[in-house]
Design a binder for these strands. Structure first.
Lengths: 215, 215
DNA sequence: TTGACAACATACCGGGTAGTATGTTCATCA
DNA sequence: TGATGAACATACTACCCGGTATGTTGTCAA
């Protein structure tokens, strides 16, 4: 199940700001979003935000971190489940895609954070913060990496170049953060089916057998 | 074969600026890139750029347009080739991925342009320009859409939801603009093999038969 | 030779924004 | 009940950057 911000952050005031900030960053991008924009979307002013966060970069880093921690929390219960690796991958992938959809704003921030770091668009001080976050993120990626290797060893997946395959897999699984938008009257089941289609596409890309692809 | 800027743009002065601008936009993003940055990377000043382009938004739009036109030019010779649709798709996809890699900076601008348009981060005047460009781009997308439908009708592809499948396919084919970076001593053949792996992954996602997947 | 224009460089202005310094309000507790 | 501090709002500053107005240089045609 997907986890929201309020379950993760105890401080309500901070959680509200983080959620508003995530939405603004998603809608307008990092630089195009002013602190006043975030404040306005809360019906407040700058003072409120700077009372809880030291800087704009700091606020963004927290949104970044939050997005990743929610992913970890969603994946944790699935890590040690038994059975074939390919089945475990499918559960993990499904959970991941669900996170991409249900916490889209935060995941966009994660994406942007990675992009900013790679481009070096960070203050030296921020660079260490981002470095730690990306370290954490790469561990997250490794969880998938290990599973698909294991599934290949078990004969369920079939691919040659691990790095590229892993890259492409994540590209597919993450893609909803770019094209998904909620439809009116959409149920939880609708979203899960949507996620399943994404997972199936990635499954095929990994060389997964077709019989198991439908679930 | 991939086409560069100089083949497309007659005016050398404009071509130089466009190339520098594309690189800057890729490295720093649109807003983070100042006109002075672009000028500095050319060893020049603002004056040179504003002599050839009316505004920053206009400069960006030209980079955007250039990226798309190069794609069209690369795809044009393949449009009407004979044979099975799935084979034609493979050739088109291969050419597309090659474009993503060899003109990465411009393709990133295209991506950013789409993103900006969707977010409404454009001046009203720019909005019409972008609208036309995106119209053109959607035609480009339709060329692939038609081919994969045809290939499905011929029994070579197998998928249910066209929209999502098309979305995910492009996501995979475009992905090199995010993760590709040239290696020292890399040959044309190396890049083509890399592209082939991406194409194969997308092929599988479309439900393509495995026998033909290796080429 | 000169004037005229293209192709820039230089100098400057104004708007927007991150960050700060300083109120103001309200709850809590001694 | 008065003091204290958290949780904001308001007012202000400094800076960056897009755009413009103006200067400079080389070239080419008459």
């Amino acid at each position: 199940m997907a986890l929201g911000v309020r379950e993760q952050v105890l401080d309500h005031a901070r959680a509200d700001i983080l959620e508003a900030a995530a939405t603004c960053f998603m809608e307008r991008g990092y630089t195009e979003t002013s602190i006043d924009d975030v404040a306005r979307s809360l019906g407040a002013t700058k003072g409120r935000i700077y009372h809880h966060f030291r800087s704009k970069a700091d606020l963004f880093a927290e949104v970044f971190r939050m997005g990743m921690e929610m992913n970890y929390a969603a994946l944790e219960p699935l890590r040690l489940t038994r059975g074939r690796a390919s089945a475990r991958w499918r559960r993990m992938a499904q959970a991941h895609v669900m996170q991409m959809i249900t916490t889209k704003a935060f995941q966009r921030a994660v994406w942007m954070g990675v992009d900013m770091h790679l481009r070096g668009a960070t203050t030296p001080e921020q660079r260490t913060t981002f470095g730690a976050l990306l370290q954490h993120r790469s561990e997250y990626g490794n969880m998938f990496r290990e599973v698909i290797v294991q599934a290949r060893d078990e004969g369920d997946f079939d691919f040659t170049n691990l790095s590229i395959t892993n890259q492409l897999m994540f590209m597919t699984l993450n893609s909803p953060i770019f094209w998904y938008s909620p439809r009116t009257g959409e149920t939880r089941a609708d979203i899960e089916e949507l996620a399943q289609q994404v997972v199936t596409c990635a499954w095929r890309g990994l060389g997964g057998k077709e019989e198991q692809a439908k679930r």
